[in-house]
Write a protein that binds this DNA or RNA. Structure first.
Lengths: 185, 185
DNA sequence: TAAAAGATGGACCGATCGGTACAAACCAGG
DNA sequence: CCTGGTTTGTACCGATCGGTCCATCTTTTA
C-alpha cells in the first residue's frame, strides 16, 4: 500500500483548506471530494471514520506543523529573542499575512470545539507554554512571562478575526508588528 | 398587531443564543424553533425572509446593544479613562466573563462573513474607532491611539477564542485585567 | 500470469436541511 | 354572534446531508 500513504498524506492539506474556509459543519462531503478530486469511495477508503477522521487528521497535521515549525524552535532557539522573532515570522507566513484563518480558532468558536476538545485545548496551551518559556529565558519572571504569552497568543488570534472581519489583511500585519515590539521590549 | 411586535422583539435574543452557540450553518430551523418555542409557521410569520432575516435581526440587535452600551458611552464619557473602564466592564458582562462567545466574531471566521459583510465590518470598525477616540481624548497621539485600539479589540476577541478553546473562562478575565492596565497606563 | 489487495466512482440509503402551503385556532372591531 | 386579519401547528416539498455498498478498475505480490 505505498500509494495509499502518499495519497492520504497529500490529501490532508486539501481537506484542511476546506475545513478552514467552511468550518466543520460547512465542510460537506461534496466539497471535500471536490477539493481533493476524490470520490466518496476513495475518501472513505483513506478515512474509514468519515468526516470525523478527516477532521482529526487535519488537526493532527496542524498540530504537527506548529510543533515542528513554531513551538520547538521557540523552546530551543539559542537566542530566545531571535526565537520569538522567528515564531512571529512563521506565524505570519502560515496565516498568509492574515488572509488565512486559524482552523483551530474557527473550531474553537463553534460546536466542533467539544468534539475535538483535546486537540483544541492542546494547540493553544502548547503555544502559550512555548512562548512563555522563551520569555522566561529572555529574562522575564514566571508570572509575567505566562501573562505576556497568553496576551500574545490571544492577540494573534484576535488579529486573525479582525483581519477576516474587515476583509483587510493589513490589520494583521500591523498588530503583529506591534506585538513583536512589545515582546522584545 | 400589538402582539406581533412584542413577540418578535422578545424572540430575537433567543435566536441570538442559538446562532452564537451553533454558528450560522449550525443553527437549524429545528433548533431555532425549539429555542423560541415557536413552530415554523410563527417563525416565518415574524421573519418572512427565513433564516437570513433572523440572522440579520440578531446582528442588528447586537449592533444596537453595543452602540448603546459600549460605543456611545466610550465616545461621550466625560472622563475618557472612566469610559474605557466602563467599556471593559460592559464587555466582560456581555460575554459572561468569557463563558459566552462573540457572535460577530464567530460569523467573521466562517462563511457567514461574506453574507453579512457590512454588519461584520461595521461592528469591529465602530468598536476600534470608539476606543481610539477615547484614547485620543486621554492624551495619546492619533496613530498611537488607533494602533492601541486595534490591539485592544483584537485582544478581546482573541481572549474569547482562548477562553472557549481552553474551556476555562478565567483566562478571559486575566487578559482583560492586563488590557485595562495597559490602556490606562 | 494468476490471485490478492487497494483504489475508485456512482448508485443508493435514511435523516435532515431550509422553505412553502394551508387549514384550523385565535382575536379584535362591528 | 359574525367577520376580518393574524397567529399557529403541521404536512409536505425538493435538495442536500453523512454514510454505505458494490461492481469495476489498478496495482502489488506470489
Amino acid at each position: 500500500m505505498p500509494r495509499a500513504i502518499g495519497t492520504r498524506a497529500a490529501t490532508v492539506p486539501l481537506l484542511a483548506e476546506v475545513f478552514r474556509c467552511h468550518g466543520y459543519e460547512g465542510a460537506s462531503l461534496a466539497l471535500l471530494g471536490q477539493a481533493t478530486g476524490l470520490g466518496r469511495g476513495s475518501l472513505y477508503n483513506f478515512f474509514p471514520g468519515g468526516k470525523d477522521e478527516m477532521a482529526q487528521a487535519v488537526l493532527d497535521e496542524v498540530d504537527g506543523w506548529f510543533r515542528r515549525e513554531v513551538f520547538e524552535p521557540l523552546r530551543n532557539a539559542p537566542e530566545p529573542r531571535a526565537g520569538i522573532r522567528d515564531m512571529l515570522a512563521a506565524t505570519a507566513h502560515y496565516f498568509r499575512s492574515g488572509r488565512r484563518v486559524c482552523l483551530v480558532g474557527a473550531f474553537a468558536l463553534g460546536e466542533a470545539r467539544d468534539r475535538y476538545a483535546a486537540a483544541v485545548e492542546g494547540y493553544f496551551e502548547q503555544w502559550v507554554q512555548a512562548l512563555a518559556a522563551a520569555l522566561r529565558r529572555a529574562g522575564r519572571g514566571p508570572a509575567e512571562a505566562r501573562g505576556a504569552a497568553e496576551d500574545g497568543v490571544a492577540l494573534i488570534q484576535g488579529a486573525l478575526v479582525l483581519a477576516r472581519a474587515a476583509g483587510d489583511a493589513a490589520v494583521f500585519g500591523r498588530i503583529l508588528r506591534r506585538l513583536e515590539q512589545r515582546l522584545l521590549a
